[in-house]
């Protein structure tokens, strides 16, 4: 991957991460952990992969993204704001009454959100339906979808996995955010994510381990490799760190939803700036 492109993507990710932290702080608390863990993925998809146009968000043959782990809404909104789907000032309305940016991604509220997530497992089935619809319409468009490792405990995920495998939906690109944590703690202590690669392969998916889900080169290598497989849906097992980049939340058990003051937010962004050598 080109070094200049990597730098640009890193700069974007820093911007998106900063906006997400400030957005959550504007409300005072929010789903920090699962937002932070997918910032690089969102950056990669919106700035290096997906065919979307903020000027024409309803374009029918666009690529689509379903964030089935809908509680990552704050990171999605920050990303969409950097793309120009809506003004950055909207981020300060997160979870306020009447907002267009609710806690969980909602297609009826937010420009650029392609399907509603949050009732875990459901967005993933919808993504299968969207990919099927794109194929029925003869579009070259693709559907991207992000699920959580906690979410992958839902039975519906595997109903959808079976169908997508049976229908050989090669335009479906799924990303499993394997950050090892869920609301109540570590997945290994609750319901461990056992043998995800074998699991998804057994459903007829083209599976790629992304050993560092925060490294753009790792993401790019896997995605480009997947594009050569044309008869299976694709699953990327993204090894990530929950709360990555919001340093006060890294490595702690209770980082699913966190209280954050505006002062804490600015301090955390400054700490991240130093860590990244900015």
């Amino acid at each position: 991957m080109d070094a200049g492109l990597i730098k640009d993507l890193k700069d974007k990710a820093f911007d998106i991460r900063s906006r997400t932290i400030r957005e959550i702080a504007s409300f005072g608390s929010g789903h920090m952990g699962g937002s932070m863990s997918i910032v690089e993925l969102l950056t990669y998809l919106y700035y290096n992969e997906m065919n979307v146009d903020p000027e024409n968000p309803g374009k029918d043959d666009r690529d689509r993204l379903v964030v089935s782990k809908g509680h990552s809404g704050p990171a999605v909104y920050a990303t969409l704001s950097t793309k120009g789907f809506f003004p950055e000032s909207w981020l300060e309305t997160l979870n306020q009454g009447g907002t267009r940016l609710p806690s969980h991604c909602d297609m009826t509220k937010t420009p650029g959100v392609d399907f509603t997530g949050g009732s875990l497992g459901q967005g993933f089935s919808a993504a299968v339906g969207i990919a099927l619809g794109q194929r029925l319409k003869g579009y070259a468009a693709r559907t991207f979808t992000i699920i959580g490792d906690g979410e992958a405990q839902e039975g519906q995920i595997y109903e959808a996995a079976e169908a997508a495998g049976a229908w050989k939906l090669s335009n479906l690109f799924g990303f499993l955010d394997l950050n090892g944590q869920q609301l109540d703690g570590y997945t290994k202590d609750i319901i461990p994510s056992m043998d995800m690669k074998a699991r998804w392969e057994s459903f007829g998916w083209d599976v790629h381990e992304v050993e560092n889900g925060h490294d753009f080169s790792c993401i790019a290598d896997a995605v480009e490799k997947a594009k050569t497989v044309t008869d299976k849906p694709h699953m990327f097992i993204m090894h990530t760190i929950k709360s990555y980049g919001y340093i006060p939340g890294e490595g702690i058990k209770s980082n699913h939803s966190m209280p954050v003051t505006k002062e804490q937010a600015e301090a955390a962004i400054e700490e991240l700036r130093k860590r990244e050598g900015r």
Binding site: D60, V66, M107, D114, F115, G121, Q122, F124, S125, A126, A127, V128, G129, I130, A131, L132, G133, Q134, L136, K137, G155, Q156, E159, A160, E162, A163, A166, W167
Partner: peptide, 23 residues
């Protein structure tokens, strides 16, 4: 026509996704 198998919850979700695509 799509036979979704014995997986009603997924059938509804797939139908919802298809609806969002204009079907």
């Amino acid at each position: 026509f799509f036979n979704c198998g014995i997986a009603e919850a997924n059938m509804v979700g797939v139908a919802a996704g298809l609806s969002s695509m204009g079907f």
